[in-house]
Design a protein around this nucleic acid. Structure first.
Length: 431
RNA sequence: GGAAAGGUGGCCGAGUGGUUGAAGGCGCUGCUCUCGAAAAGCAGUAUGUCGGAAACGGCAUCGAGGGUUCGAAUCCCUCCCUUUCCGCCA
């Protein structure tokens, strides 16, 4: 949620930036609600003050008939006004929630993902002296991916992953966790990238994979039923990323400055309905209703959050480089970063079968947009209380498996295991 | 799922209808003392929101929401959560 003060002070800017993100929010109507709400609030507070005065005046004694009569009258008036106030308040908040976060100056303005800007490319795209197979074909041939039987059990867009592919996946988690919890590795990444951030390692977390409506909504990440799975008999939604259940962890809390930055790397199974993607990426495990993901989430002091965002991108690159996968870094444009984001960067990996780069990682710079609704705050050294900044970024999802299969495939249908992962596959060089 | 006890400020903890936004303690901040520190003493120390240039003032907040009352942390209802016991279970 955006700061209403900021909107009051910069209505034209908010209109323009919202439009750049493709959000048609009626700021004038919002400010109208805001004014009306404040007007009513003054009246309500005045009545309450009078009510309190009478109640103070009676102290421990029995009130006079006159005082009781006055109190009754105020109560009636208050009832009406408070009702009006709460209904305008509701309209106000509903509209306010739809105002997106403001993109930073360096976010390219665009209308679709076609306007995203490629920042850099890394690695050598593999040259094959045979026709490379898609991960879906390889996976089926080698018995690693079985979607037909999964469809029988759970419907389309689910999969059984089996055999070495499963070991490879767990290797990915093991490897990333080993790196992110190592202060030496963290220091190396910081110094190689000349970053000004804390060298505190990440704490591994397995969060709940579900969240209540109120909590999920506060993260700004709750898409309605068409995108997020809802449990029918409970007020719970299945998380679409560990970010969604880690970000609200400190909801309603005031944290100590000395605890910052708070860095977590969380693992969950993520669930997405993927409505509106019929026919898209239906091959293999590119786009499933259920997948596993290791996600970084950090809570930062406002002045540190942008550097933390850059740090997370550096980590993502480090992880991809460690696997030797060719990738590019993409600065997402205003239309593509999403409502709560002030800035968003993707890492896309090269997929030979598609002859194109595909997204494997995202890094989100959220500023205080989530924290404002979650009311996650920090008490600074000088006693001041501020909203924290949240940052999140993918460590690994299952998509890098696709890239490993495709980029590292051999003519006989085998796959070279990236060196850093071999220790987790009994030292196997090829799977 | 059943039963019981609970949910009060950064933390612990008093408080069952009216000077309680909330005793007391801890923590934190400042001052005194000291060469310095500790200890001790004194003072201060919730958040949000509205008005105000500010000083300051109003209002709200004792898990959440609703109700009773002239007046609610305190009484009633619904929900959420925690702990213990039972049941079930990886």
């Amino acid at each position: 949620m955006l700061d209403i003060q900021f909107i009051r002070n910069n209505p034209e800017l908010v209109k323009e930036k919202s439009k750049q993100k493709g959000y048609g929010v009626d700021i004038d109507q919002l400010l109208g609600f805001d004014g009306k709400r404040r007007e009513l609030q003054l009246q309500v507070e005045d009545l309450r003050r009078r009510k309190n005065e009478i109640s103070d005046a009676t102290k421990g004694q029995r009130p006079s008939d006159e005082q009781v009569a006055q109190g009754r009258e105020i109560k009636d008036q208050l009832g009406t006004l408070e009702h009006q106030l709460s209904s305008i308040e509701q309209e106000f908040v509903t509209l306010l929630k739809t105002v997106p976060n403001m993109p930073t100056e360096d976010v390219p303005v665009g209308v679709s993902e076609n306007d995203n800007v490629i920042v850099r490319e890394w690695g050598q795209k593999p040259q094959f002296d045979f026709e490379p197979k898609s991960h879906a074909v390889l996976g089926e041939e080698r018995g690693w991916i079985d979607k037909e039987r999964a469809a029988k059990v759970a419907g389309s867009r689910f999969a059984y992953l089996k055999g070495d592919l499963v070991l490879l996946e767990f290797a990915l988690w093991q490897f990333a966790l080993s790196q992110l919890t190592s202060q030496d590795v963290i220091r190396k990444i910081i110094s190689n990238n000349n970053l000004q951030v804390s060298d505190k390692p990440f704490t591994p977390v397995i969060p709940p994979a579900v969240a209540k409506t109120e909590v999920y909504d506060a993260t700004g990440r709750l898409n309605k039923e068409e995108q997020t799975y809802k449990l029918a008999d409970d007020d719970l939604w299945l998380n679409a990323s560990a970010e969604h259940t880690m970000a609200p962890m400190y909801m309603g809390e005031i944290l100590n400055e000395s605890d910052f930055p708070i860095r977590y790397v969380g693992y969950t199974t993520a669930f997405r309905r993927e409505a509106g993607t019929y026919g898209k990426d239906s091959d293999g495990i590119m786009r499933l209703h259920q997948f596993n993901k290791l996600e970084m989430e950090s809570f930062n002091l406002p002045e540190d959050s942008l550097n933390e965002h850059l740090f997370m991108i550096a980590i993502q690159e480090y992880l991809m480089q460690s696997l030797g996968l060719p990738y590019r870094v993409v600065m997402k444009c205003t239309a593509d970063i999403g409502g709560p984001n002030a800035r968003g960067v993707d890492i896309d990996v090269w997929l030979p079968s598609q002859n194109q780069y595909r997204e494997t990682h995202t890094a989100d710079y959220i500023t205080d947009y989530q924290a404002r609704r979650m009311q996650t705050r920090v008490r600074r050294g000088n006693g001041e209380v501020q909203l924290v900044h949240t940052n999140d970024a993918t460590a690994f999802s299952e998509r890098p498996l696709i890239a490993i299969l495709e980029n590292n495939q051999t003519a006989d249908g085998h796959v070279r295991v990236p060196e850093v992962l071999r220790q987790f596959l009994s030292g196997k060089e090829v799977m």
